[in-house]
């Protein structure tokens, strides 16, 4: 269950933003991605999650092992907290949602509609979804947005438990999670040279666009 990324280049809106990215994520390891706004953290994570094709290089991720969490929580406002989780649990074919609710301290909110949750509570519910996927490799985009310090600590504990159980996590974040064992990968050195265009196999296009 290793994720190996070699010489990866990713593009946003037809422009290459990162190139030559390489790292290995082993079971039990957490990797925190750092870098200024706009460097391409989200683009990199979306590429690794398979939502968009890489421009060059490869990311070998064992099939059916990755759980992705984006900026948005993907919650349905008219469903209760438990119903939201039950849906994802059945999509991923895992059983119960109780452990996930307990893990993110949401048991008392289980029958409240997502519309009536605060921003931080929604975020916790969104993160609880990771626990019901049963996937070993978590790919997280700014997981701590709108969480207070207590919730950040709670989340760090959940990640730590996940790592201890043989999972791995790739996290793009600006704040200190308090995960001392996490390694940090600064993306700044991988910033693509300006003018690199992503035009797939059609090299002639880049040439004509010189």
């Amino acid at each position: 269950m290793e994720m190996v990324v070699t010489d990866l280049a990713v593009a946003r809106g037809g422009l290459v933003v990162l190139e030559g990215v390489g790292f290995t994520l082993r079971p039990g390891q957490a990797l925190v991605l750092r870098g200024p706004n706009g460097i391409g953290k989200t683009t990199l994570l979306r590429t690794l999650a398979g939502l968009q094709p890489p421009v060059a290089g490869r990311a070998s991720v064992p099939a059916e092992s990755l759980a992705y969490s984006s900026h948005a929580d993907g919650l349905k406002a008219t469903l209760t907290a438990a119903e939201n989780l039950v849906f994802w649990a059945s999509v991923y074919g895992t059983g119960t949602v109780e452990a996930a609710l307990a893990g993110m301290n949401l048991l008392s909110l289980r029958d409240r509609r997502a519309a009536n949750l605060s921003a931080g509570q929604k975020r916790r519910l969104g993160l609880a979804r990771l626990l019901v996927t049963g996937r070993p490799i978590w790919v997280l985009d700014e997981p701590t947005v709108s969480l207070d310090t207590a919730s950040v600590a709670l989340f760090a504990g959940v990640v730590r438990a996940h790592l201890a159980a043989g999972g791995a996590a790739l996290i793009a974040t600006h704040i200190d999670l308090g995960l001392d064992e996490a390694e940090i990968l600064d993306l700044s050195p991988f910033r693509a040279a300006p003018g690199a265009f992503a035009h797939g196999p059609d090299r002639g296009f880049a040439e004509a666009f010189g």
Partner: peptide, 14 residues
């Protein structure tokens, strides 16, 4: 699409 669940569905085993 707006609330992000389409992204999550696309990365799910479905």
């Amino acid at each position: 699409f707006e609330d992000g669940s389409l992204d999550l569905l696309a990365t799910s085993p479905l």
